Simulated scan of single mutants.
Amino acid sequence: MKITVTGSLGHIGRTLTEILMEKGAELKVISSNPERKKSIEEFGATAAIGSLEDVGFLVENFKGAAAVFTMVPPNNYFDPNLDLIAYYKRLGENYAKAISEANVKHVVNLSTIGGHLEEGNGILKGAYYVEETLNKLPSGISITHIRPTSFYYNLYGYMETIKSDGAIYANYGNSPIPWVSPEDIAQAVAEELTRLNSGRKIRYVASEELTGDQTAEILGKAIGRPELKWQLISDEAVTDRLKAIGMNPGIAEGLTELYAGLRTGLLAEDYQKNKPQPMGKVKLKDFAKEFARIYHNN
């Protein structure tokens, strides 16, 4: 089965590549980094090196694929000139054009929790626009939107204050946070790519639900700091902290709105109606071992 995936060998891509190769897929992995070519080929996959901004490149590498995995790669939140929503819109349109021109019939798209919202989801609005753009493709093209929840690895962003203050400062966490591991996302994506469903589908992926206090307790135990606290602060304080470390002001405000949506329940309203069962296999205590290694080696 011929499959083309975007996302290179990132957090999701590496595990996804491993799973698909084990399933016997004839796999092509798209990457913008020429240095990834050797690593991709070591998996037994074909490396396609080029830019997602190049529709012609996408068409060439989508042609002949029974299924395609699309995702918008992370960008530099500290770039003062980055218009993140425009970036999402542009790549969403590129994917739609390439899927149509390459006559792809099965698409699995990486979206996000909150992807159903046009407002109130901060920077996740970009994923909403990608979903909307792909959904305008002809009905004969099957599309599954994968909506993962809060990534465990986002917790690395709190490393500095964990070390300095023994605290995680956030404007959410008073209610359960639906966390997810990239490994569980990769498993779900692989299942959908090889299942070849018809029609349109939404699939949420989550690994474990924990409050901020429970999250801090598990991380604190793993790093040898049982006093670690999850400290709730205001939206304004979160925005100010993000801007102070040099983040693009618009993105800082968008992240704050995203997290506020977790606090109010707005972001997870559709997730709560369509909660995945069972949850993923990778729990926070598993991720905490990796977190601890990095914490003690930095």
Rank of each mutant, 00 (worst) to 15 (best):
K2A: 10
I3T: 12
T4Y: 12
V5K: 09
G13L: 12
T17D: 03
M21G: 10
G24E: 09
L27E: 13
L27K: 03
K28C: 15
S31H: 07
S32M: 03
N33Q: 12
N33L: 05
N33G: 00
F43G: 10
F43C: 04
F43D: 07
G44M: 00
A45N: 02
T46W: 00
S51C: 07
L52H: 06
L52N: 09
F57S: 09
V59M: 11
N61C: 00
N61E: 11
F62E: 04
F62K: 08
A65E: 04
P74S: 11
N75R: 11
F78H: 06
L82Q: 04
L82M: 07
L84G: 05
I85E: 11
A86F: 06
R90C: 03
E93P: 00
N94Y: 11
Y95K: 14
A96R: 14
K97T: 15
I99N: 06
S100D: 15
E101S: 06
V104P: 03
V107E: 01
V108M: 08
N109W: 15
T112F: 01
I113K: 02
E119C: 08
G120E: 03
G120W: 05
G122H: 01
K125Q: 15
Y128E: 01
Y128S: 01
Y128P: 12
V130I: 12
E131Q: 14
T133V: 10
T133A: 03
N135Y: 12
N135T: 13
K136E: 07
L137A: 01
G140Y: 14
I141A: 08
S142F: 08
T144L: 07
P148N: 14
S150F: 09
F151Y: 12
F151K: 06
F151M: 07
F151D: 04
Y156F: 15
D165V: 00
A167S: 06
I168P: 02
N174F: 10
S175W: 02
I177Q: 01
W179F: 09
W179N: 03
W179S: 05
V180P: 12
V180W: 14
V180Y: 09
D184H: 06
A186G: 07
Q187L: 13
V189Q: 11
E191M: 05
E191G: 14
T194K: 00
R195V: 07
G199D: 14
A206G: 13
E209S: 03
T215E: 00
E217Y: 02
E217S: 13
G220A: 07
K221G: 03
A222H: 06
A222K: 02
R225V: 14
E227F: 02
W230Y: 13
W230T: 10
S234K: 13
S234N: 09
E236L: 04
A237L: 09
T239M: 10
T239V: 09
T239E: 15
T239Y: 08
D240Q: 15
L242N: 06
A244M: 01
I245E: 00
N248W: 06
I251H: 10
I251N: 02
A252Q: 11
A252R: 03
L258W: 13
Y259C: 00
A260M: 04
A260H: 09
G261F: 06
R263K: 12
T264I: 04
G265I: 08
L266D: 01
E269F: 05
K273A: 14
K273G: 11
N274Y: 13
Q277W: 08
P278V: 05
D286P: 11
K289S: 09
K289Q: 14
E290V: 13
I294L: 13
N297G: 01
N297S: 11
N298C: 00
N298H: 03
